[in-house]
Design a protein around this nucleic acid. Sequence first.
DNA 1: TACGATACGGAGGGCCCCGCCACTTAGCAA
DNA 2: TTGCTAAGTGGCGGGGCCCTCCGTATCGTA
Lengths: 186, 186
Amino acid sequence: MPAQRADARRNYARILAVAEEEVATHGADASLEQIARTAGVGSATVRRHFPTRHALLEAVFRGRIETLATRARELAESDDVRAALLDWLGALTVYSATVQGLATALLRDGELDPEHANPCVNPLAEAGEPLLRRAERAGAVAPGVTPVDLVTLIAGIALATQHHPDPAAEATRLLHLTVAGISPRA
Amino acid sequence: MPAQRADARRNYARILAVAEEEVATHGADASLEQIARTAGVGSATVRRHFPTRHALLEAVFRGRIETLATRARELAESDDVRAALLDWLGALTVYSATVQGLATALLRDGELDPEHANPCVNPLAEAGEPLLRRAERAGAVAPGVTPVDLVTLIAGIALATQHHPDPAAEATRLLHLTVAGISPRA
DNA sequence: TACGATACGGAGGGCCCCGCCACTTAGCAA
DNA sequence: TTGCTAAGTGGCGGGGCCCTCCGTATCGTA
């Protein structure tokens, strides 16, 4: 018993492919109707496959998020714990600042459902946790920092720099400030 | 030669008053039509007085921004340069995280006109500059930090925490992390 | 091949932003 | 006070988006 009909799977793939391009150019506010039109399906079909805008964004960014999670796992075996953490944070920052709509998806995540199911933030937070824990044990990170804090801060930086001429560079610069501290105690 | 007719001034004031409430409850995405309806004017009148959404937001937040600028000038005479800066950053954070739409207005600011005229960020940046300079000279702040950086970072934090149960508290917590540094060098 | 469940998409309602344009009214002058 | 003129107004229509409903086409199977 195929859980899904063949045409449904086809449409899902078409919509997702179009959505990726559309979100890449127009960000998280891309028109769902425009996506439907370009994909050659009715707008109801888009809604059927992706009940909410966030569901669509989640699907669009799943790959990117997985890539970042994998990178975190690789870096978890690096020798320099601090450099490993910073490396990952830098990658996360560049992704967030470069990929249109990703930061929005991260922040709007779990906006309504208070329980679990933050499909964007959670994988990243879980992937980053070992990295953070290790750095914490080595005294390379301030106490009281959670993985979600890191993702939130970086998403905020990305959102704040998205209208800058060079978002990635500016976001990276602000990340460095945040890492080093604006006004660390001497 | 009255630059403006009496009824125009009246409508301007009515619209602004309604807009303040509406933005306070619905944030930066408040419906301009709803504002017009509540104010008892046509939507065209709203557009005439405030050609863009940002122009309206700017007017709505002008008072708040002025208050923050005044606070900065007061703190500029404080003895403890570091505490003065942090105090102001804290106030800026609480405002940005509490006042619906303020952070958005700060970030969307100067989005289109590349030249001067960032009517929200500029006054804040100029007000904060002496505070920052003083702290810099005293070695209490990392080099390479600009006033705009501070406003941008804080606005980003506010945006990132706006869906949190207690935005002001969460934003303040993240500000402290940013000030102290995520991973300051030992 | 015929049937039933699944999936589709067009139509319609509601809301919004935007621009146009005929009308009203405030403020000045006679 | 009265009349004139331009500043100011707001209703209307166009276009777009989101969302829902429901009749219809298609798939997979018996």
